[in-house]
Design a protein around this nucleic acid. Sequence first.
DNA 1: GTACTTGGTTTCCAATTGATACCGTTAGGT
DNA 2: ACCTAACGGTATCAATTGGAAACCAAGTAC
Lengths: 114, 114
Amino acid sequence: MVLQRIGDKWTPLVFQVLKDGPQRFSAIRAAVQGVTPKVLTQTLRTLERDGLVSRTIFAEVPPRVEYGLTPLGQTLLGPLDAVRAWAEEHAGKILQSRQDYDDQAEASTAVVSK
Amino acid sequence: MVLQRIGDKWTPLVFQVLKDGPQRFSAIRAAVQGVTPKVLTQTLRTLERDGLVSRTIFAEVPPRVEYGLTPLGQTLLGPLDAVRAWAEEHAGKILQSRQDYDDQAEASTAVVSK
DNA sequence: GTACTTGGTTTCCAATTGATACCGTTAGGT
DNA sequence: ACCTAACGGTATCAATTGGAAACCAAGTAC
């Protein structure tokens, strides 16, 4: 239940953006390209609910909302980085493995279809 | 793309089962309680495709299929454990945070509904 | 009153996940 | 010959999740 957070598609990316300090909604959205506002809101709400991210509203006009890592959220940066490092180091092999797997499947079906 | 594997709901559990040696489909299914055969098959296929898990068929009757970690898969055990340790250590705080969050939401709606 | 900005929400559709039921092969029992 | 059981899945369908596009509320500036 707790583990899933980390593997969530957007969570690691959001953490990368927030690790150097709080950011506004729009800034996160721009930095994490490809995320839709709805899903970004969902992600941030869940992280807030879990106590990993804080949400601060400034009573200004136009409104300003800042998201930042809580102390608890910061303790996750380490493990997250370990996994990221692993992924970067082995990404090549994994992609290669997928390639081989797909090529083989393709070759098999090619034979069958003849 | 590579990161998602780790956060997949069942992947860490499967790794826990396989870390001490190869296991049969049924054994994994029994150890990882709650997983349906379809989803377990999917999970294992994906891991195999990524080169993290090996699949060995023994030509016996009844047939026997064993799944085990590849050398690449074993290199993931370390990072995976770092995250698992983090999750165990902080699970209490996270659950507490969720509780607080939900309680607060409940209180708010209670007021509204009066 | 009209436009503009921020931080979202709403609506709708596609893709993923999951529960339940079923299948094919072979062996062993009777 | 026929029935049953073990194993490793697949097929079918409902439910949940993810994403694209459009919309919205508040307030101030014009």
